[in-house]
């Protein structure tokens, strides 16, 4: 059974020893204890498990660790420096763009992926990019407003 022994996550190389077929989601959560990346559906339909892989928003629940060997993985824990929130996170706070918060880290990571891909996404582009993420509490309008704020504040 092929194994994966190294993952580059949040600026560090982590030694692991896991079945190469395991999902990145549960390796992040259970082996690296990065629990901010969350399980919601297991089929890439809700976005709660989104991280950046080489800067691209990626569903970890349908990504095996073998697919990300040698790639740069960034999880929600690496987005802020521990003292100050980054602009996307702060905009979510400012808009109270969460209720239970379970989808929030996936939303933040998906928004970050979008803002890397497009400098100034329009509202329609934000909705399209975020449409694969589910907020069952229904804070969609607040999330869009938060991302629009980040775009508006860009120099």
């Amino acid at each position: 059974m092929p194994r994966v022994t190294e993952l580059f996550v949040n600026g560090q190389t982590h030694s692991v020893d896991v079945d190469a077929a395991r999902s990145l989601l549960f390796v992040l959560r259970d082996e690296l204890e990065l629990t901010g990346t969350r399980y919601g559906c297991g089929e890439g339909e809700c976005g709660a498990c989104t991280v950046l892989v080489d800067g691209v928003a990626t569903r970890t629940c349908i990504t095996s660790v073998s697919e990300v060997v040698g790639k740069e993985i960034v999880t929600v824990e690496w987005v802020d420096d521990g003292a100050t929130l980054n602009s996307v996170q702060q905009a979510f706070v400012d808009h109270d763009a969460m209720e239970c918060g379970y989808c929030t880290s996936g939303m933040v990571m998906c928004a970050m992926g979008l803002l890397r891909e497009k400098q100034r996404p329009t509202r329609a582009e934000i909705v399209e990019a975020m449409n694969g993420n589910i907020c069952r509490c229904g804070t969609y309008l607040r999330i869009v407003a938060a991302i629009e704020d980040v775009v508006a504040d860009k120099p």
Binding site: R29, V76, V93, M98, S105
Partner: peptide, 20 residues
């Protein structure tokens, strides 16, 4: 504002599913 909003946007909050 939500008193624990920072813990939610940073992924730091531990839901039951995050307990290790």
């Amino acid at each position: 504002p939500k008193v624990n909003a920072a813990d939610l946007v940073s992924g730091r909050h531990k839901y039951a599913s995050d307990i290790i």
